[in-house]
C-alpha cells in the first residue's frame, strides 16, 4: 500500500524516485487564472509587481481547482530585468498581456562580453519573487509543492539581445555566443540559489529558445547543453528542464542535462520519448494548454489526460503556462480525471 499524505508528498516522492499512487497533475510554469484574479479583484498587470498579489494569485489555482502546485512568477522577464533590461507590463491595458522586454542591454555584437552585475540576486524583482515564494509556502506549502522557474541561458540571451542576431551568431560565431551563455549560466545559478534560499521545492529551467523548431539538435548539443549542465549541477532542489516545440530528436540530450525531470509540450510524441529514455526517466508533459484546456470541450480535456498517462508521462503537466482564460469546468474536469487514477 502506497501512502501519500499530500499533493506535495506525491510530487516530492516522484522527484525522489519513490513509488507513488498516480501521476500528479501540476506545472513548473505560470499558473495564474482569470477566475482566480476575479476572485481576488486583481488586475493582471499588477500581480507581477507585488509579492502578496503574486503569491495570492498563484494560490487560487490550487484553491479553486485543486491544481497540485503553486508557482511564481508568471512572466519571463525577471532575470533580464535584473540584468538591466527595461520591461513593459502593459499597465494601461485591461487585456491579459504578459510583460515583455522594452529595452535590451546588448545592441551590437561588440557588447556581448557582459559582466554579471554584482549582487544580481538583489536586483530587479528577484527579492519580490523570493518574498512571493515565502508567502506562497506559508499559505499552501503544506499541501502542495511550491515551484518557480528561471530561463535557460540561451532563452535569456534572446531576452537581452536581438533574437535575430543571437540566432545568426550561434552559427557564425559560436565561441562568442558560448562565452555569453557561460556568463548567463552564472547569472541563472545566482538567481536559482536565491529562490532555493526562499524555500522553493523545485525549479524549472525554461530553455524554449533552443527548441528544434528553431535550432538544430547538433547546435543544441554543442552550444547549449554544456551550459544547461553547468546550471543543473548547481541546483540542489529537484529540477526540471522544459523545452517546447519539436523535441523528439533532443530528448536524449535533455535527459543528459542533469535535470531531475524533463518537460515537453504537445508537439512531443511522448510514447516515443518514453521508449527512447526508458521507464525510469521522469518525463513531464505534454498537455496542450490552449487547444485542449482552453478551447476544448470537457470530454476532450478528459481524453487528453488519459492520452498523456497512456503515452507514459510521469506527471500530467501543461506544455506551457496555463492560459488565464481557462474555463473553470475544463480545469475541474482535468483534475477530476487525474484523480481517478489514484490507487
Amino acid at each position: 500500500m502506497i501512502k501519500i499524505i499530500s499533493a506535495r508528498d506525491r510530487v516530492m516522492k516522484l522527484f525522489g524516485g519513490e513509488e507513488i499512487d498516480r501521476p500528479p497533475c501540476f506545472s513548473g510554469m505560470g499558473n495564474v487564472t482569470a477566475e482566480g484574479l476575479k476572485e481576488l479583484g486583481y488586475k493582471f498587470a499588477s500581480i507581477h509587481l507585488d509579492a502578496r498579489k503574486m503569491a495570492d494569485s498563484s494560490a487560487t489555482t490550487y484553491k479553486l481547482f485543486g491544481f497540485e502546485c503553486g508557482v511564481v512568477p508568471f512572466d519571463l522577464c525577471v532575470e533580464a530585468e535584473a540584468l538591466g533590461c527595461e520591461i513593459n507590463v502593459y499597465a494601461h491595458l485591461e487585456d491579459i498581456l504578459y510583460p515583455t522586454i522594452k529595452k535590451k542591454i546588448i545592441h551590437t555584437e561588440d557588447e556581448m562580453d557582459i559582466a554579471i552585475p554584482s549582487g544580481l540576486q538583489h536586483r530587479g524583482r528577484i527579492p519580490l519573487v523570493c518574498e512571493a515564494i515565502r508567502l506562497l509556502k506559508k499559505d499552501i506549502g503544506g499541501e502542495v509543492p511550491v515551484g518557480t522557474y528561471v530561463l535557460g541561458p540561451f532563452t535569456l540571451a534572446g531576452q537581452i539581445m536581438e533574437l535575430n542576431d543571437l540566432l545568426k551568431l550561434s552559427f557564425k560565431k559560436p565561441d562568442k555566443v558560448g562565452r555569453l551563455l557561460d556568463a548567463l549560466a552564472d547569472a541563472v545559478i545566482l538567481v536559482a540559489g536565491e529562490y532555493e534560499k526562499a524555500g522553493v521545492d523545485y525549479i524549472t529551467v525554461r530553455e524554449m529558445g533552443a527548441t528544434s523548431d528553431v535550432l538544430s539538435p547538433r547546435v543544441f548539443k554543442g552550444l547549449i547543453l554544456p551550459y544547461l549542465k553547468k546550471i543543473f549541477e548547481k541546483i540542489s532542489v529537484p529540477s526540471v528542464l522544459h523545452i517546447c516545440g519539436k523535441t523528439n530528436d533532443i530528448v536524449p540530450f535533455m535527459a543528459e542535462s542533469g535535470a531531475r525531470a524533463i518537460s515537453v509540450d504537445q508537439k512531443n510524441d511522448v510514447a516515443e520519448s518514453r521508449k527512447k529514455l526508458g521507464k525510469e526517466a521522469r518525463i513531464f508533459g505534454n498537455y496542450d494548454p490552449y487547444n485542449v484546456l482552453v478551447a476544448g470541450r470537457p470530454e476532450l480535456v478528459r481524453e487528453t489526460v488519459r492520452k498523456c498517462v497512456n503515452d507514459g508521462v510521469s506527471a500530467v503537466w501543461p506544455g506551457c503556462d496555463i492560459w488565464p482564460t481557462v474555463p473553470p469546468e475544463n480545469f475541474k474536469a482535468m483534475m477530476e480525471e487525474i484523480r481517478k487514477d489514484g490507487r
Binding site: 540566432l167 545568426k168 557564425k172 528553431v214 535550432l215 538544430s216 547546435v219
Partner: peptide, 14 residues
C-alpha cells in the same frame, strides 16, 4: 527536411 533551421534561414534571407 530539417537540414536547415532558423539561423540558416535568417542568413539565407540576408
Amino acid at each position: 527536411a530539417q537540414e536547415y533551421f532558423v539561423p540558416e534561414l535568417l542568413m539565407c534571407a540576408d
